[in-house]
Write a protein that binds this DNA or RNA. Structure first.
Lengths: 229, 229
DNA sequence: TATAAAAATGACTCACGGGTCAGTTTTATG
DNA sequence: CATAAAACTGACCCGTGAGTCATTTTTATA
């Protein structure tokens, strides 16, 4: 076997990869619509335009399909966040970059977002085969952030605190605020979510100057409590 | 029918209420262990020490049992939070009181906490019969908090900002941090969760004095990144 | 104690969906 | 084109669990 042959993917492998990708995309749509438990593999197969049996040529079980669909996106997210943070300079810019990458994903991949938002609790808490790898990936992203925070604390740009816990907190805030926006609880306009989260994380709510919370457009007065919607 | 008769509960009603309570408590234990979907009514009945058919004398469906079990505790939580906030004086004390009440529930009712943490996403997002009332109750609690925040903004104790969004954010933070603690991701010692959340919400992470983040015990140095556990 | 009403029971039904596999179609090869 | 291998199909199998109801047990009453 030549070098070229070992490094190049065979026609079969390329096709298999393509098909897997299609299946995972279809799966994300269905899991987003129904949630993990209510989703059926019949529906996933239909969505992917193949027969149910074919799913089992590419994946061994429903659980594996789900986890593969989620992992794919999480790995991408981590990659992008890492490189965005590396490119930025200074603690503020790095945090904003990390936030922006997550915001970007939320905006562009509604299916993944919905899965992430609704299944997060189960992903973390219930003893499925994929709980451990999920936690590890989630924690790894938090650790990437925590390194930035820790560097900021050393340089004096941040006040000292527990870096990993603060990093997790920031990840939580982002997920939650996007959930809330998605659910229609957060105002749809006049509130830049990424800015809102950054500002809160950075400054908190107490008054330190006459400057208003920058999440509010200066034109608009502080919003009044809104009715349920 | 005399006045006394209309206001007093009959023996039958008292017993029925007691039995319902037992069922809901058993249901909370089972839903906490298994999650909504994996929980079976056979197990709930066994846990309650009754036959499955008996469940249906008190509740019409699995969904209703679940929602009744959750609602009961959420209503209690709201009551307690309201009265705690009313008793406290000043914005700081009121926020701390609201946090303390939630922390207290998390500490004393592990079953409810686990349900709340793991099913939150589904509760919010999926079109079940109980989604709307759940959202309303959750939002109502946020609005209670938001009123306090808004008063603080008017009095200048807080910088201006969107009150409902900030209130929701605080609720999110609390749930998430308790989830993290519960999952063993947050440090088990040296980190007072209620204090940590309050401080972050109040001050953010940027340096404003030499004072370290009070969430860290002064004796302990800032914690290093920890390995997955 | 006799008897009727209320409460409780648990075996049963039935729809559902994950997973299988014998049979069919497509593709690769000589 | 012939033939074998690979890919795909979907009807079927089977465990599961929500919800039912004929029967039994308990309670209230006269």
């Amino acid at each position: 076997m030549t070098r070229a042959e070992t490094s190049r993917k065979t026609r079969h492998e390329v096709l298999a990869e393509f098909r897997s990708g299609e299946i995972l995309a279809a799966a994300r749509r269905v899991f987003a619509r129904r949630g993990y438990d209510a989703a059926t593999l019949d529906e996933v197969a239909q969505e992917a335009g193949i027969a149910k049996g074919t799913l089992y040529l590419y994946f061994p079980s429903k659980e594996e399909i789900f986890w593969a669909a989620v992992r794919e996106r999480m790995l991408e997210l981590r990659q992008r966040a890492q490189s965005a943070m590396r490119q930025a300079e200074g603690i503020q810019a790095r945090l904003r970059a990390a936030i922006a990458v997550r915001g970007e994903l939320m905006r562009t991949d509604a299916e993944f977002m919905r899965i992430y938002l609704t299944e997060f609790g189960h992903l973390c808490a219930h003893p499925t085969r994929y709980r451990k790898p999920f936690r590890e990936l989630y924690l790894a992203m938090a650790r990437d952030l925590a390194e930035v925070l820790e560097a900021g604390m050393k340089s004096g740009e941040l006040r000292p605190g527990p870096p990993l816990e603060l990093a997790l907190t920031l990840q939580f805030l982002l997920r939650d605020c996007f959930t809330a926006r998605y659910m229609g609880v957060f105002a749809d306009d006049g509130l830049n979510l990424e800015n809102f989260v950054f500002e809160l994380f950075w400054c908190g709510v107490r008054p330190q100057s006459a400057r208003p919370h920058p999440a509010v457009k200066s034109a608009a007065p502080p919003r009044r409590l809104q009715k349920t919607r």
